[in-house]
Design a binder for these strands. Structure first.
Lengths: 207, 207, 207, 207
DNA sequence: TATGAATGAGACTTCATTCAT
DNA sequence: AATGAATGAAGTCTCATTCAT
């Protein structure tokens, strides 16, 4: 007989996570104190530990947040017909992710998550697992393109997927470091790279 | 009136930095104590502060280590003749960087440096500065290729440079997270991407 | 206007005390949290405070538990005829107390009560009061023996009583520390001590 | 190449232990904060942890303090000739221990040590070990008396030793609880008990 | 120059207690 | 009466940095 409903609990938990995200983004994980999160979230010190067992647990929870990756995956899944269209969707999705001002904190915290993943198995698993799902999906898309004859047979679908992901990880880093990301230019470049690589005649993308 | 020579001092300093690199790689920056570095380096607690004013100063020094980037730059500079050859050199250099077991600690610490750069201006400047130099050099190489007619005129040299760097940053991350980096596969993929993008006819690389 | 009967209330209270006794015995008073008692007793956190105003109040209640001392006193009171028989009864009673496996928790918590009594007046009063009653009763028994001529006139009844109690306190401690208590051997020793001390000719006990 | 000598270190350590003893005696172990010990000892918070790894470690060190037990043992060892004299020495020694105002804190902390010993193996080992040594020595003394014909052959040396120790433990408790310890009366009682028990004719002690 | 003992501010976490439901 | 979520004060321990030797 719980005193609060599951949804109230979830709301409270999210309220803490949102506050933590802002704090971590602003000050970094290790320079954020639980007192900071408490102040930012409006809950009490004790309540924090009613929802998370540990400060580390909070980052893990942030890293585990599948909402973003899931959106990508389902976007990709929709493009079951055409591989090239699917890749276009992918570029678009990532492009938005890179520049969406609502995701600034998310991007900055991701980078801290990478650093933590080097020594925190839970975060490591979360990141690697999330990446692997996307990578499989992209590789499958390319393989489908090969089966359809849309994509050259001699490219390695998984290698391309891995490389694409790496590129977006690097761009995420650069965006967070304040490098200007000219989405149009990057988009053209990546379009050109992919189509040059994948299409039999190097036909222009979307053209 | 220094009691030790400049070179003795430099040796000592490097000894501390080497120890710090091992510690940071193993435990992360924030989970490494100055006591750890002292233990690993063999110098005393007090001595540490004769060479670095602050623990943060040690990461800054590691981030500032230009030795690696400089090697890349000079390698690139040598290929003044042929843009395509220059890019080949670049891929080779980065490929080695990614897989060189002697650079494992370096790669891991780089990632932590990225996280620190978000809030430490000195590290930020160091990373961004280092990247910018490489990026300029690559863009120049491509522009030279365009001037020579080797490279398509409608590509954006800087966009390509930025993208390339991003990709290698992402691969560095993946390597440190334990993802298998199949250098041959990645190399073929990147070769294909670059040549598909850059060369007028999408001619095969090095073929 | 109570919503539960007095006996329901008493049952509930005892249920909490029993749980607390197990917890305190296992983990010590200060390492037992109210949450532990809640878990062990099956009542809720809030309910605990309907029955006890404070965690300290729970130990006080346990220390105040007169059931054991009362049993001793009434046993002693029954032996109004013969002092030597009365002392025999006493040894028997204490011997059982020391070895009764049902009283293991009780003994362990007693020792913690001693430590608490040093700074908690209520517990102090409870322990000292309980001891004093027993001590008076024993001294009275001996004095009666002196009046009857059963016991040497030159012994100090109160000194003997105090010493006897001390011995049993020490044995309680030793039992709880895991020392083997050979009841037969201890019984013979104490029998010998008492009779050697008390009886005019040092006649053998119960012989 | 230590900066302080072993003896300086030992002095500092003892200074902390002395302060801790006062604090524990006054407020109890669990109601003493490390801040209290720091205040009372005059060292800094950090220094405390240079000498003890843990707050628990401080009690263990206090329990481990063999100085008192050793004094008793060597006193007993001196009385190699006469068992009855040896026991007299023992009573005297314990009598002084019980009433020595310089040992008030020690006695109070002992009782807390008993409570801790129930769940702290190091303290348990310390107390039990210390007691065992004394017990062996007393039993040996009595056995020697039996060999000499001074002591009745039918008493159990170890049982007597254990009982004696128990009595003094109990008296320590009572003394700390504020019970008046009339040393003369207790001494006569114990003298009578021991001699009634041990001597063939129940001859008067020291008479 | 080098040392390492000392410092003390501050972090994370626990837990007795309360109170709205 | 009973519940259990919420509270926040407080405690232990760590660690970057200093400074007398």
């Amino acid at each position: 007989m719980p005193k609060i409903t599951e949804s109230q609990r979830e709301t409270r938990r999210q309220q803490i996570l949102d506050a933590a995200l802002r704090c971590f983004s602003r000050d970094g994980f290790h320079n954020t104190t639980t007192a900071d999160i408490v102040r930012e979230s409006g809950v009490s010190q004790g309540t924090l530990y009613l929802y998370f067992t540990t400060k580390d647990d909070i980052i893990v929870a942030l890293a585990d947040d599948r909402r973003h990756g899931d959106a990508l995956l389902s976007a990709l899944a929709q493009s079951e017909q055409d591989a090239v269209d699917g890749l276009g969707l992918l570029l678009e999705f990532y492009g938005r992710s890179l520049s969406d001002p609502n995701r600034t904190d998310s991007r900055r915290v991701s980078i801290q998550g990478w650093a933590e993943a080097l020594r925190n198995p839970a975060i490591h698993a979360s990141i690697v697992g999330n990446t692997a799902a996307v990578r499989r999906q992209i590789a499958a898309l390319i393989a489908r393109g090969q089966a359809d004859g849309q994509v050259r047979a001699d490219v390695d679908p998984d290698g391309v997927a891995q490389t694409l992901i790496a590129t977006f990880q690097g761009l995420t880093l650069q965006a967070s470091l304040g490098e200007v990301i000219d989405l149009a230019a990057i988009g053209r470049t990546m379009d050109g790279m992919l189509l040059g690589l994948l299409t039999p005649a190097g036909r222009a993308a979307h053209a």
